[in-house]
Design a binder for these strands. Structure first.
Lengths: 243, 243
DNA sequence: CGATCCTTTGATATGTTTCAAGCTTAGTGG
DNA sequence: CCACTAAGCTTGAAACATATCAAAGGATCG
């Protein structure tokens, strides 16, 4: 008999940076019932109003959450990278209040919501790690409210690009403020509450100012200090030290 | 010897609507070390960058959370009513990423963060109730991102007025869509990402349209159905059934 | 009863959207 | 391997929603 390595290994590793896990905690996590699913870009995992049976962990690729207004406008609410829980709230809330969709082709691990919930409640160290995860999630939402509510277009976009850079680096997926932005300008627009046309103009402007350079969707932040200022960016809300 | 009734009674009662608590859970909550503090309107409880020792529960009055941008603009992020936790995230995250300020004079109960944290991790039923609380908090942030990102001024303000109405009613603090809005138009503006001048004009408009009526800060939503439409309001995100 | 804070109103300025069209790139089938 | 197509990006001109500036009018509270 021979165990395949759990698809959750990397996620567990990330949780260990949040709270020290014991042997029993690790075993419990490894024992979680789960199934891996491969989804193409743009596939929905959860829809607004669904009553999901699972929580998803992103293994590879990028995902995003969004809502559609009555007018048909879309607002992207968060962007997720590998090893992150995409919809932890399903563990405790019955009905989903937003959509979860793939930004790129992606693999996700599905874990029954009750399994996650029971683990969070029965294993203090795991509970703690999940709490931190969920609370950082909420901290990002708060910052996005500010971004979209009180910053002009240049700052909004700069802020998002800064956030993306630091988050990717903290996941070990980029360095030197250089990365591949996995979204179209239309999606970018929906993340910052602007039109795609205007996003295009602002990106061009940032490039002219020498703050960034672009090649297709590859972004290089050429001057991190000035970019931080342009985006009114302060990484405190990312709570990177909690990781 | 004679115990004074715990100031936390109402909050505990609210938690019981989230998860069934046993005798031991209730005792643990009642045994929580805590102190009551009375704060005047506009007093700060926590400031961005603080490392708070406590979590606050609102006993009476209203509080709000906000952030200030580098340009000096303020964005209000949430508004809190009696029995709610104002800053649960302090239990698990060391440094605060936003300000918590009183909207009106208020009484708050301070509970040491470690006490809350240990309780959340050691008592599954309490943990569950707190999880639901925190996740609903996050659900409101998400809706606010949408509100501020993708709705025009009329819808934004209508949405906020609808949210306020339902939340107050669910707390037993209002009925018939009639309530006292505990904020100035400037604060309203900071909650929806507009200027106070424009908020004023939109309120006037909503009044002319017969959707609301006002007297000082007393609001009556005269036509709930049309107001819901105007605000593109769907209460799903409030997860009222979880209560 | 004066002073301060809030609300209301008008005129003008501006950032962003909307509309429309051309351009580039990547993918697909002949 | 080329031609075709669809998707995304870029650009310009005009329209519009909201901001800004400025000042007057209420309300509230020592």
């Amino acid at each position: 008999m021979h165990d395949r390595p759990s698809p959750l290994l990397k996620m567990i590793h990330r949780l260990e940076t949040r709270a020290r896990l014991g042997e029993a905690d690790r075993d419990a996590l490894l024992g979680l019932p789960c199934s891996v699913r491969t989804l193409p870009a743009a596939a929905y995992l959860v829809r607004d109003g669904d009553v999901p049976e699972n929580c998803g962990v992103l293994l590879s690729g990028f995902a995003y959450r969004h809502k559609i207004t009555g007018e048909g406008a879309r607002q992207i609410i968060s962007i997720h990278m590998p090893t992150e829980f995409i919809d932890l709230q399903n563990a405790f809330l019955a009905v989903s209040d937003h959509n979860v969709q793939m930004l790129t082709a992606a693999e996700i691990v599905l874990i029954p919501r009750v399994a996650i919930r029971d683990l969070a409640l029965s294993h203090p160290a795991i509970g703690r790690a999940l709490w931190i995860d969920a609370l950082i999630d909420a901290a990002l939402f708060r910052e996005w409210v500010v971004n979209v509510g009180r910053r002009d277009s240049r700052a909004r976009i700069s802020h998002l690009l800064c956030e993306f850079s630091l988050r990717l680096e903290s996941h070990g997926l980029a360095s030197s403020h250089r990365y591949e932005l996995p979204m179209t300008q239309e999606q970018l627009a929906d993340a910052v509450g602007l039109t795609p046309v205007h996003v295009n103009r602002v990106l061009k402007l940032l490039e002219q100012e020498g703050l960034i350079s672009r090649d297709k969707r590859a972004i290089v932040i050429e001057d991190w200090q000035r970019m931080r200022e342009a985006g009114d960016f302060n990484e405190r809300y990312l709570h990177l030290e909690a990781a």
